[in-house]
């Protein structure tokens, strides 16, 4: 190992560097979270004492997040969008995994690269390109068929599609990696024992994939929940939480209620992330 042959001061310095790095990682998260509990109208020092008003307060100026109608609405829309995105992405991710692991067809490498590409397209561009196509289609239909296709205008459906367009790549990669490790003899054994194709899929292959599917679903949920760049261009009147928070920050300036929301989201996504790790570790061991 690189550090083994070195003198101890080197290793000590190295450890200090690693420690400093983790402090750097933690600092903004701590400052975003901690001020949620400061009994002050501004998220800044000095510390004025502990309060939970920014969560539960029900009167201005200390209106807590659980009484702030617009924030709660944003939370609800984010939740709905994230659920749809994760279901869609896990479904397509699973079919893609089977397609690329089991399927034999010409140009497989080309299609595989096509599958990875959405991940390297900037989110802003995914957003505008889908906005342009949807609006053009809606305008065309309106002009020639005199039909107003409301769902192609910015709104929840477009946000879901926009986020799905690149999150599907993430879920595909996660589920493909798991399917690659599958031992084909297990399926063969089941076939030899007389099981039908559907039954083998249901009782053997899908249970094997389940941890990866759950983990991919959680990842999709979290990425959707925190997405801003793609959503920004596709959002209609039903703004998800990140957009609502950004508006609040730009118009009202930062207030501790945003810290409360940050703290709430950090705890929520932290728990979900731990869950996804637990699910994967359990079954792989």
């Amino acid at each position: 190992m690189l550090a083994k042959n070195k003198t101890t001061p080197f290793l000590f310095g190295y450890r200090l560097y690693v420690l400093a790095f983790f402090l750097f990682l933690a600092a903004p998260l701590i400052s975003a979270g901690a001020f949620a509990f400061n009994d002050s109208l501004f998220p800044a020092l000095p510390w004025q004492g502990f309060t939970l008003d920014w969560f539960f307060g029900d009167t201005e100026p200390k209106l807590g997040m659980f009484h702030d109608r617009r924030l709660l609405q944003g939370l609800y829309y984010s939740f709905v969008i994230a659920i749809f995105v994760s279901i869609l992405s896990v479904f397509v991710g699973t079919t893609n995994a089977f397609l690329f692991i089991r399927g034999e067809f010409p140009g497989k490498n080309f299609f595989y690269i096509l599958m990875v590409i959405p991940l390297v397209i900037p989110g802003v561009i995914l957003g505008i390109s889908i906005l342009v196509l949807a609006s053009d289609t809606a305008n065309y239909v309106e002009k020639n068929l005199d039909l107003e296709l409301e769902f192609l205008r910015p709104g929840i459906l477009l946000v879901v599609l926009g986020q799905f367009s690149f999150i599907a790549t993430i879920t595909s990669l996660v589920i493909t990696a798991r399917l690659k490790k599958f031992d084909a003899t297990m399926e063969e054994a089941a076939f030899n024992l007389g099981a039908t194709r559907a039954r083998v899929l249901r009782t053997i292959t899908l249970p094997f994939l389940r941890p990866a599917m759950i983990a991919a679903g959680i990842v999709a949920f979290l990425v959707s929940f925190e997405n801003f760049n793609t959503t920004l261009f596709l959002v209609g009147s039903e703004a998800p939480l990140t957009i609502t928070m950004y508006d609040r920050m730009a118009k009202v300036g930062s207030t501790p209620v945003l810290n409360a929301v940050s703290f709430f989201l950090m705890v929520g996504s932290g728990l979900l992330a731990l869950l996804s790790i637990a699910v994967q570790r359990d079954k792989q061991a």
Partner: peptide
């Protein structure tokens, strides 16, 4: 290392603003 990954850009930027 992964923990900040699960927090949105917005919150990370917000944290830096407060610092």
């Amino acid at each position: 290392c992964l923990i900040p990954l699960w927090v949105s850009d917005l919150i990370r930027a917000f944290g830096w603003i407060l610092l």
